[in-house]
Amino acid sequence: MVTVTININGENRTATVPPETTLLRALRDNFNLPGSKLGCDVGDCGACTVIVDGKPINSCLMLAAQADGRKVLTIEGLASMNGVHPLQRAFEDCASLQCGFCGPGVIMSAKALIDENPDPTIPQIRDALGGNLCRCTGYVKMIEAIQIAARVMRGETAEVNR
């Protein structure tokens, strides 16, 4: 067993897990954060995407032990008590998610993109979502929502509502 302390959504949390436990399993089973989804468990689908030290990664391909001492942001940490994140708002307003299962991963990928590039082009958005498979939406309304959220975050528009 290994004991890991991970800063998750701004809070230091500790768990003792078998060494083969992935970060995804630890988040879901040990830290009670089921927002990150298990879709393939081998890094193909992106439903488990979380942000580790500022970078989006597949939490199914990182051991919990490898995340020891690092900062992890999950979908649960994106909203605050004061309100939802502009991306979450834009995704809601544009009906960007259908079954919603890929959503947490997609939004974390989008969040990492906008943090790094506040004004992404459509090809850059497509590239950022290249690791997030979605079977419902054709990605169209996700791309639209990411553009809107980026505008809101750049302060160009206050309203997400179209």
């Binding site: 992935t22 890094g43 391909l61 051991l63 032990a65």
Partner: peptide, 26 residues
């Protein structure tokens, strides 16, 4: 040896063969 884990963990997930020891060099 595990570094990024993208190949190793994907291989081990559905494999009946597994190492006894993994050395994390990350």
């Amino acid at each position: 040896v595990i570094a990024g884990g993208t190949d190793l963990l994907a291989d081990l997930k559905f494999s009946a063969h597994s190492p006894n020891v993994v050395v994390d060099i990350s």
